[in-house]
């Protein structure tokens, strides 16, 4: 039996209870092609069942809900199943199984959590903020896993009083810090007015990036290993263009660079100066370079201090 659930923790725990004794259970929050005769059920969250399940699991392993919260952030198709097999093993053994890496369920869950934490760590470096005319900062991101809110405490700590928005573009949600409150909010499309200096700072940054490169040493495989091409989309330094500038770039790397170039079109448009027309199709862009109305910009940005806008969802303290 295939158990579809909506990706939430409550729905997962409900599905977990239903599927626990089903030897062929498959839990998924994504799409799954059914084979002929295969049965499936869409599980709705049942708060009572979920609470009971959570309580029991916590008795067996007090850290298992932390693991689950990471596993459900995974952008991989089998995220429900990885979490299911891992928690089922805890329930079967009646104790924590963390560290029993010879077990498939444990090693897969551990590896999945490692990848999610790695992406959150990488994004702490690869997020790029654009400064808006109001002084607030806006950063579009496109992570594989749902890690946007994990980044909130990090940036809140360092930016202090400066409001910022981390916009998870594919998921249509944003992690917001308004200078006093941190919250998550749905955000499909944002229009912002860039500050007058923004284009100048980006140009300086590009100049710095190109100047700090040692042209005699091309190590593109290493570069892409540390900074995978999927993160290049919103980088103002435009690594794909920098690769194109290298005299000794090897053929395979150039091929990668070319595809990255195409992918970067949307990102570059984002970094266009506020008076320049955007050259990318508007439906791919969360933000237009062209100056929108001040009201639209205000709507897209975090409210000022003490604003009555209620938090859409609790974020990390």
């Amino acid at each position: 039996m295939i158990y579809f659930f909506d990706g939430s923790k409550e729905a997962f725990l409900t599905a977990f209870l239903l599927a626990y004794r089903d030897g062929e259970a498959l839990l998924t929050a994504g799409e799954k092609q059914l084979s002929i005769g295969q049965k499936s059920v869409f599980v709705r969250a049942d708060p009572a069942m979920a609470a009971k399940c959570e309580r029991r699991l916590l008795e067996l392993d007090k850290r298992c809900m932390d693991d689950l919260s990471f596993l459900l952030r995974s952008g991989e198709g089998m995220r429900g199943q990885t979490a299911f097999l891992y928690l089922r093993l805890i329930a079967q053994r009646g104790r924590p199984v963390r560290g029993e890496l010879a077990e498939d369920a444990v090693s897969e869950a551990t590896e999945c959590i490692r990848r999610i934490k790695l992406e959150a760590h990488r994004l702490k470096g690869f997020v790029r903020f654009l400064e808006c005319a109001s002084g607030a900062l806006y950063a579009p991101v496109s992570p594989v896993n749902d890690v946007c809110d994990l980044l909130l405490p990090h940036f809140r700590g360092r930016l202090g009083h400066i409001p910022f928005v981390l916009h998870d573009v594919p998921r249509g949600k944003a992690a917001v810090w308004d200078g006093a409150h941190a919250f998550l909010a749905p955000l499909q499309h944002a229009e912002i007015v860039l500050s007058s200096d923004e284009a100048g700072w980006q140009a300086l940054w590009r100049r710095y990036y190109n100047a700090v490169t040692l042209p005699s040493r091309a190590r593109l495989k290493q570069m892409k290993g540390y900074m995978p091409v999927r993160y290049w989309k919103f980088l103002p330094e435009d690594p794909a263009a920098a690769i194109g500038d290298l005299p000794a770039a090897d053929a395979s790397a150039n091929a990668g660079g070319a595809s990255a170039n195409a992918e970067c079109a949307a990102g570059r448009a984002l970094h266009a100066p506020s008076d320049a027309p955007s050259d990318a199709p508007s439906d791919t862009l969360p933000v237009k370079g062209r100056a929108p109305s001040p009201q639209a910009a205000r709507d897209a940005l975090p409210p000022p201090h003490g604003s009555p806008r209620p938090p859409a969802a609790p974020a990390h303290p």
Partner: peptide, 25 residues
């Protein structure tokens, strides 16, 4: 961060990588 901007990150953080494979931190 004591009321200004910025703080230390004890593990360090790489912000970009140049085509020579070196990090920009």
């Amino acid at each position: 961060n004591e009321g200004g901007i910025g703080n230390g990150m004890p593990d360090g953080c790489c912000h970009s990588f140049t085509p020579d494979g070196r990090c920009v931190s």
